[in-house]
Design a protein around this nucleic acid. Structure first.
Length: 463
RNA sequence: GGCCCCUUAGUCUAGUGGUUAGGACGCAUGGUUCUCAGCCAUGAAUCAGGGGUUCGACUCCCCUAGGGGCUACCA
């Protein structure tokens, strides 16, 4: 069997979205699992919305997620270029070839004309489709239109075959009636190709073997299959993966919180944690373990276990997966990334070793690194600010606190064991233990009623 | 409107004609603990509805409902 080649083909019209990232991830996992190639192609034919800045950030986010590509813009490769605006010559060439073969034709209808026709059809209760006005113009008619200076686009001539079967790996056989599409534009009057044409031509030319993409493209596949056939190119296999929806079951967007990869990156979610969560959105393993490294994911990934129904992005589960990664990796793995999130006061006071210690204590349940600010608050140096309630309880425990001070004062070697012993002896002295013993001390030292292990806090904060 | 896809607990999912419908997140309770967390244990909660097919349907077929997508010279 020939080498597996898959691609991720984003449009640089915004930040990398969790849906796009999941599609990219599935492609990448599939390629790596089969030791094939992962190709990145930039679909920037929408000149209105595409920008170089978005493209730059797209690549950055993809790399951050841990995805690397074998061919792509900047990287290069033998099927390049990998930016569609740099391939316009090829699309034109293929479009003209189809015209010459009678499989496509020039169209001179203006937007206005098309629009009024659509309105009329809607009124008449018919599906608004292209009526084939320019299909049989003939060479003379075409010249006449050109002489009038009308815009010229190229439309694909949809044959009279009644239906087309598409065999989708993820969902089985899907049948589309061909009459659902009219003759559609493949080359716009500005010379740029439309999505369906460019995607089909590129996938064919780049020898893509598996097209793995979002389910919203399923109806497009009909057009692309027709183009493949007209071009006489070998068909790739298709796999349409279910969409990711927001909590209200509509397509994920800004109002659902943070749908962009960049947002999660900013908050300090480890990339492998996000990849882990995303992998399980629409896919599952045979086993029961859900905390997996990228290596384990690539080892197990396959298209057969992709689910059919759309899934809802659940931040609570992402948090759980992420906290597991952070706990397992500890300061050894995450301290460098965590540095930017430590409160300045802590960074001034402690050296790297102590910060590592604080990280490990504070990261017992840390969904993302930015939450360190709150979790590490107990380690802030100096006298904390006390709330009204805290003041009241501290006043009530005045004698106990004095006992602590003298007990701590007697410690020579400041260590966990010595601290623990000092706390106990102060307790014996005042005849208190348990909660009544620890809480006043915790409150006095940290200002909070909750927090990490008190002895560890004292050990790090020092005498 | 037309066409296509989807439907197992609040959420992610396992399940391919006979199961006490399994797991995970979240939630609740108990244990460990100064507290939170972690860990351990326990619990509540699911096959959208209706028809078939079958000795037997979560599983196969049809209808309905709901959701989503596409229907552009956007991708």
């Amino acid at each position: 069997m020939s080498e597996t080649r898959v691609r991720f083909a984003p449009s640089p019209t915004g930040y990398l979205h969790v849906g796009g990232a999941r599609t990219a991830l599935f492609n990448w996992l599939f390629a790596r699992h089969r030791k094939g190639s992962f190709i990145l192609r930039i679909e920037d034919t929408d000149s209105q919305r595409s920008t170089g800045e978005y493209e730059r950030m797209l690549l950055e986010d993809l790399r951050w997620l841990g995805l690397s590509w074998d061919e792509g813009p900047e990287t290069g490769g033998e099927y390049g270029p990998y930016r569609q605006t740099e391939r316009v010559g090829m699309y034109k060439e293929y479009a003209l070839r189809l015209v010459a073969e009678g499989k496509a034709f020039p169209c001179f209808c203006t937007d206005e004309l098309l629009e009024t026709k659509r309105e009329e059809m809607k009124k008449a209760g018919k599906p608004p489709q292209y009526d084939g006005a320019c299909r049989d113009l003939g060479e003379a008619g075409r010249e006449e239109m050109r002489a009038k200076g009308l815009p010229e686009s190229v439309r694909f001539h949809v044959g009279d075959e009644s239906a087309k079967k598409i065999d989708d790996i993820a969902r089985g056989e899907v049948v589309f009636p061909t009459e659902m599409v009219g003759d559609f534009v493949i080359l716009r009057s500005n010379g740029l190709p439309t999505y369906n044409f460019a995607a089909a031509v590129d996938d064919a030319m780049m020898r893509i073997t598996h097209v793995i993409r979002g389910a919203e493209h399923l109806p497009n596949t009909l057009r692309q299959v027709m183009i493949y056939e007209a071009l006489g190119m070998g068909m790739p296999k298709f796999a349409h993966i279910p969409l990711i929806l927001g909590s209200d079951r509509t397509k994920l967007s800004k109002r659902h919180g943070a749908p962009n990869i960049r947002d999660y990156r900013e908050k300090g979610y480890p990339p492998e944690a996000l990849a882990n969560y995303l992998a399980f959105l629409g896919w599952s393993t045979k086993g029961e373990n859900e905390i997996m490294s990228v290596e384990q994911l690539t080892g197990e990934f396959d298209l057969e276990r992709v689910s059919d129904s759309p899934s809802i992005f659940d931040e609570a589960k992402l948090n759980w997966i992420s906290a597991n990664h952070i706990r397992a990796g500890g300061s050894r793995r995450y301290l460098d990334d965590a540095m930017r999130y430590f409160p300045a006061k802590l960074k001034e006071r402690y050296g790297r070793e102590d910060l590592a210690g604080i990280f490990d204590i504070a990261s017992e349940n840390l969904p993302c690194l930015s939450m360190l600010e709150r979790e590490a608050a107990s380690f802030a140096p100096g006298i904390p600010e006390y709330s009204e309630e805290a003041r009241a309880s501290l006043r009530a425990a005045g004698q106990l606190l004095a006992a602590f001070i003298s007990a701590f004062g007697g410690i020579d070697q400041w260590s966990d064991g010595a601290i623990r012993e000092a706390i106990k002896s102060a307790g014996r002295e005042r005849n208190v233990k348990g909660k009544d013993l620890y809480m006043p001390l915790r409150l006095a030292v940290t200002g909070f009623p909750h927090g990490p292990d008190l002895v560890s806090i004292l050990a790090i904060r020092g005498k």
